[in-house]
């Protein structure tokens, strides 16, 4: 068996409480949906192996608590994120209004090297509810917001029915991969400068 390291792609899902972050993740990874609502405590993650352009990747998807603004877990799980998924509920105006806060919060906490071009994906979830009759945020409005933030890809999803979930995560993985690879190319340059003396100090270059 070839022992090749698989590239790890880290994805963070953010959004207001109850918009369906956990359900989206479960639908994508486990193809399961539960109607029962259980608030996520702190954060949790699932992994999925994905194949893309004939290469295998490990997708590590972090589901975060919408309620407590992750103070309890600190910023560790933001570290090295390759893509951030912002989720809102198309039936709840506030969850859409808060997208901006979530985006800013992420950029502050994760402090990516190139915040302007960091890949986000926006998901408008729960489009199945009430046949779309209780919807308050129009697709047009959502797309306009995404366009204003640097053409963020946008999907309308239903974790319950599995609508668009697979498609959305395909794009998420693709964008994560793009940012992950740029990062890999970028890093060696930054490493070399200061670390040769460090290395000597460790005394193991014998």
């Amino acid at each position: 068996m070839p022992s090749r390291r698989r590239t790890l792609l880290k994805v963070i899902i953010l959004g207001d409480s109850g918009v369906g972050k956990t359900s989206l993740m479960n639908q994508y990874v486990n193809k399961k949906f539960s109607n029962q609502y259980k608030a996520t405590i702190g954060a949790d993650f699932l992994t999925k192996e994905v194949e893309f352009e004939d290469r295998l990747f490990t997708l590590q998807i972090w589901d975060t608590a919408g309620q407590e603004r992750f103070q309890s877990l600190g910023v560790a799980f933001y570290r090295g994120a390759d893509c951030c998924v912002l989720v809102y509920d198309v039936n709840v105006q506030k969850s859409f209004d808060d997208l901006n806060n979530w985006r800013e919060e992420f950029l502050i906490q994760a402090s990516p090297s190139d915040p302007e071009n960091f890949p986000f994906v926006v998901l408008g979830n729960k489009v199945d509810v009430d046949g779309g009759n209780s919807r308050v945020v129009s697709e047009k409005k959502a797309r306009a917001w995404c366009a204003s933030k640097g053409n963020i890809p946008y999907f309308e999803t239903s974790a319950k029915e599995g609508i668009n979930v697979e498609e959305a995560f395909q794009v998420i993985a693709k964008n994560a991969l793009k940012s992950g690879e740029e990062e890999e190319i970028y890093l060696p340059d930054t490493i070399d400068v200061g670390s040769t003396s460090q290395q000597r100090a460790s005394g193991c270059d014998c």
Partner: peptide
């Protein structure tokens, strides 16, 4: 051996 980023170099030290 080989160049490490600072946190890894510290851990090795």
């Amino acid at each position: 051996s080989g160049p490490h980023e600072p946190f890894i170099a510290d851990s090795v030290d």
